[in-house]
C-alpha cells in the first residue's frame, strides 16, 4: 500500500510533465493537423534556457521558468512563420518533413555551439530540496510538490484561455473550420501563431520541471521526452485538450509502474498501452471519430 502510493506519486509527477508537453502537440495538431516533430526539441531548449538563466544570471525559479517558457514560445512562433506557414496549402506531409528538418536542426545546431555542445550537464537546483513524510508513510519531496502544483496551475490557465477568453474561442473556431472562422473575421494566422506560442510555452515549462526531477540535460533529451508526450497526446485523443492531460497522466503512471515491475518493460509499456487503447477506441480516449458526410 505504501509502495503503491509512492509509485503513484512518481507516476503523477512524471505524468503531469508529459501532459504539459502533450498539450502542445495536441493544440498544434488540432489547429493545423500537423504532427510538430520539433515540439520535443522546444522542451530541450526550455531546459537549457533555465540552465543558463540560473548559472549565468543567477535567476531564481520563477524567473528561470518564465524565461524558459518565453524563449521557446517566441522561437516556436518564428518556426511556424518561416517553415510551416508557407506550406499550409501544400500536401500535408511536406510540412511534416519540414518539421523533421527543423527538429534535426534544433538538435544539432546547439551541439555545435561551444557553450552548449553534446555533453550532459548537471541541472542546477532551482528550489531547496526537502522531504515530507505523509501520514501513510509515503514520501513526497519539494520538487514533486512544485512540479505538480506548477503543472496543474498551467493546465488550469490553459483551460481558462481556451474556454473563457476571446482568443480561446477563436482557437476553437479555427480548429473547427478555418475557412468559416476566417469569414467570421478571425485572423487565422494570428490564432495559429498564438497556438504555437502557448504550446511551446508549456513545453518549455515541461522541460524545466523534468530537468528538476532528472537533473541531467543534453541536446537530445527532447527526442524521447517528446515521443512519449506525443504518445500521450494520441492516447488521450489527439486534438483534445483534456485528452492530452489524461493521456499524460496515464503514460506517466504506466511507465513508472512498468519500470518498477521490470526495468526492461519501462520503455515498451507506453507503446503497448497505446495500441490497446487505439484498438478499442480508434480515436483515443477522448477523441471523437469523425463520420464523413457524403
Amino acid at each position: 500500500m505504501r509502495e503503491t502510493l509512492q509509485l503513484l506519486i512518481y507516476g503523477v509527477q512524471l505524468g503531469v510533465i508529459y501532459a504539459l508537453i502533450a498539450l502542445g502537440y495536441t493544440m498544434v495538431y488540432g489547429i493545423i493537423n500537423l504532427i510538430n516533430f520539433a515540439h520535443g526539441d522546444l522542451v530541450m531548449i526550455g531546459a537549457f534556457v533555465a540552465y543558463f538563466a540560473a548559472e549565468l544570471l543567477g535567476a531564481n525559479f520563477p524567473l528561470a521558468i518564465f524565461l524558459a517558457m518565453l524563449i521557446p514560445a517566441c522561437l516556436s512562433v518564428a518556426i511556424e512563420r518561416l517553415a510551416y506557414r508557407p506550406l499550409r496549402d501544400k500536401p500535408r506531409l511536406s510540412a511534416l518533413i519540414t518539421a523533421i528538418g527543423v527538429s534535426i536542426f534544433l538538435e544539432n545546431f546547439p551541439r555545435m555551439l561551444p557553450f552548449i555542445g553534446p555533453n550532459y550537464r548537471p541541472f542546477p537546483m532551482l528550489i531547496p530540496f526537502k522531504n515530507f513524510t505523509l501520514p501513510t508513510g509515503a514520501v513526497l519531496n519539494s520538487i514533486q510538490i512544485v512540479n505538480i502544483l506548477v503543472s496543474v496551475a498551467l493546465m488550469v490557465a490553459l483551460t481558462y484561455i481556451v474556454h473563457r477568453t476571446k482568443v480561446g474561442r477563436a482557437m476553437r473556431a479555427v480548429s473547427f473550420n478555418k475557412d468559416a472562422a476566417s469569414l467570421m473575421g478571425i485572423n487565422v494566422n494570428r490564432i495559429i501563431a498564438v497556438t504555437f506560442f502557448l504550446g511551446a510555452a508549456l513545453a518549455g515549462a515541461g522541460g524545466v520541471l523534468y530537468s528538476m526531477t532528472y537533473p541531467m540535460i543534453d541536446v537530445l533529451m527532447g527526442i524521447w521526452l517528446g515521443t512519449k508526450a506525443f504518445i500521450a497526446a494520441v492516447l488521450g485523443g489527439i486534438g483534445s485538450v483534456p485528452g492530452a492531460m489524461l493521456g499524460g497522466l496515464i503514460m506517466g503512471i504506466c511507465e513508472v509502474v512498468a519500470t518498477a515491475l521490470y526495468s526492461e518493460l519501462g520503455y515498451g509499456s507506453g507503446f503497448v498501452i497505446l495500441i490497446l487503447i487505439l484498438l478499442f477506441r480508434p480515436a483515443g480516449l477522448l477523441g471523437k471519430v469523425k463520420i464523413e458526410k457524403v
Binding site: 518533413i97 519540414t98 528538418g101 527543423v102 527538429s103 536542426f105 544539432n108 545546431f109
Partner: peptide
C-alpha cells in the same frame, strides 16, 4: 545542421 536546413528548404 546543414541536412536539417536543406530538408526545410527542399520542402
Amino acid at each position: 545542421v546543414i541536412y536539417g536546413i536543406a530538408l526545410v528548404f527542399l520542402m
